[in-house]
Design a protein around this nucleic acid. Structure first.
Lengths: 138, 138
DNA sequence: TCTTGAACCTCTAGCCACTAGAGGATGTAG
DNA sequence: CTACATCCTCTAGTGGCTAGAGGTTCAAGA
């Protein structure tokens, strides 16, 4: 009927210390305990933890997941807020991609350096000289 | 002739606590001090700190920068190692872009959800259900 | 019933690259 | 000589875990 933390871990692919961490920060409710203080979980905890895992895999921050979990428990509400959170996250991801793409192009130019001496190395030059690339952030 | 930490900060756009942090982890050498223990920098410290800043802007990790700084000080050496470090970093950046692009596509499908009730929300469904997207890491 | 040992428990500290803040000292311009 | 911007050190916090110490519990097999 009830699962140990290890069984929950196996079913969700979330590591045991991570489960305890999620409990500590309030993403997972405190489960019941045996007399010896070991945690015992119910099947619905598997569902909740899977939800959390999927959201983390999609790059949602813990704070966003906390909000999504709150909203998800309210079936009659409009999902506008869920949409907004996801959209905001999508925009962040797009931003990151844009910045990394600029970075990639810069690095690709740099690695065309053909193994001369350090004193003529294009990479070292780019790094040592001025800030042509001040627009880049990370 | 010599610069205060604030002047160094202004010239390099690196924040004062960050400069002290770089000293602490050994990226910057300990500068001379006034009698009152305030740091005083030489112009070459500006160059070194600019090098560090450029490398950070390009996403190099501190460990990589430590190596690059070591190599940069050796003008007659071949820049093969510099090339390798940069190439490895480039590959990491490409990897990140690939993962984020997969994420973006997944999120874009999700946000096509058209504001129904939570109980029919596509986003919540994706998060709650299965792991079609187990291949995604972040 | 007892023993073994895998799995559990709590607690603290570490990772990266900073950032923030407390509480006090220094240095320079007027 | 005073005011006050800037400097100093030290500690703790950020996010999302992960690792390890040192001890306890539980279930299966003898």
């Amino acid at each position: 009927m009830s699962l140990t933390i290890g069984e929950l871990s196996r079913q969700t692919q979330v590591k045991v210390p991570t489960i305890r961490y999620y409990e500590q920060i309030g993403l997972l409710a405190e489960p019941t305990r045996t007399e010896g203080q070991q945690r015992r979980y119910r099947p619905e905890d598997v569902r909740r933890l899977n939800f959390i895992r999927h959201a983390r895999e999609l790059g949602f921050e813990v704070e966003a997941i906390r909000q999504l979990l709150g909203l998800a428990g309210d079936p009659d509400r409009s999902c506008g807020e869920v949409h907004d959170i996801t959209k905001a996250h999508l925009e962040e991801v797009k931003d990151k991609i844009a910045r990394l793409t600029a970075l990639r192009d810069e690095l690709e130019t740099m690695v065309t350096c053909d193994h001369r001496r350090i004193s003529e190395c294009r990479i070292i030059e780019v790094l040592a000289d001025h800030g042509q690339c001040q627009h880049l952030e990370h």
